[in-house]
C-alpha cells in the first residue's frame, strides 16, 4: 500500500516522514525520524517507556496513531536539554541515582516533566501518581521519586 505523509513538530523542529497509514507514533519516531529516546518496551501501553508529550500532555507513543499527530507538537527526552545545559530533571536524575540500566528513564523523564509543567510543587503522592504508568525494574522507584521532588525544589531555588 502507498505510504502516507505525516508532518509534525518534534522537539521544536518541523519534521516529516512517509509511513504506513496505521503506523504508531513510536515506530514513526524511531524508524522514520531517527528519534531513539522513546523505547519499544511492551507495545501494549503497560510499561510507559515510550511516553512522549503531545501538545504538552503525556501520551503513549506505542498506542498513538502517527497520522493523528499531524500538525501537533511531539516532545521527547532528547529535546529536554538546552544546548549543553541539561534540564533540571535530568540533573536531579543523575544526582539521585534515578537511572540504573536507564531503560525506563526517557519515559520517566517525560512523565515527570508533564507533572512539573502543570504542578511545579507536587507532593510525594502526586509524584507517585504521575509515574504510576511507568515501570522501572531497577531502582525500586524511591530514587526516581526523590529526583522528581528534588527537581521541583531546584526550580524553586532558581526562582528565589
Amino acid at each position: 500500500m502507498a505510504k502516507v505523509p505525516v508532518q509534525f513538530r518534534l522537539n521544536g523542529s518541523d519534521r516529516a516522514a512517509f509511513i504506513d497509514a496505521a503506523d504508531n507514533l513510536l515506530m514513526t519516531l524511531r524508524r522514520g525520524l531517527n528519534e531513539f529516546a522513546p523505547k519499544y518496551g511492551c507495545g501494549q501501553g503497560t510499561c510507559g517507556v515510550c511516553t512522549v508529550l503531545i501538545d504538552g500532555e503525556p501520551q503513549l507513543s506505542c498506542l498513538t496513531l502517527a497520522v493523528a499527530c499531524e500538525g501537533r507538537h511531539v516532545e521527547t527526552a532528547s529535546g529536554m536539554a538546552e544546548g549543553p545545559n541539561l534540564h533540571p530533571l535530568q540533573v536531579a536524575f543523575m544526582d539521585n541515582f534515578a537511572a540504573q540500566c536507564g531503560f525506563c528513564t526517557p519515559g520517566m523523564l517525560m512523565a515527570a516533566r508533564a507533572l512539573l509543567d502543570r504542578n511545579p510543587k507536587p507532593s510525594r503522592e502526586e509524584v507517585i501518581e504521575a509515574i504510576a504508568g511507568n515501570i522501572c525494574r531497577c531502582t525500586g522507584y524511591e530514587p526516581i521519586i526523590n529526583a522528581i521532588l528534588a527537581a521541583a525544589g531546584a526550580g524553586d531555588q532558581k526562582r528565589a
Binding site: 501501553g45 511516553t51 501520551q59 503513549l60 512523565a111 507533572l115 504521575a130 504508568g133
Partner: peptide
Amino acid sequence: IGGPAIRQM
C-alpha cells in the same frame, strides 16, 4: 483508570 498517559487517551 490506567496511569496519567492512558487517561489522556
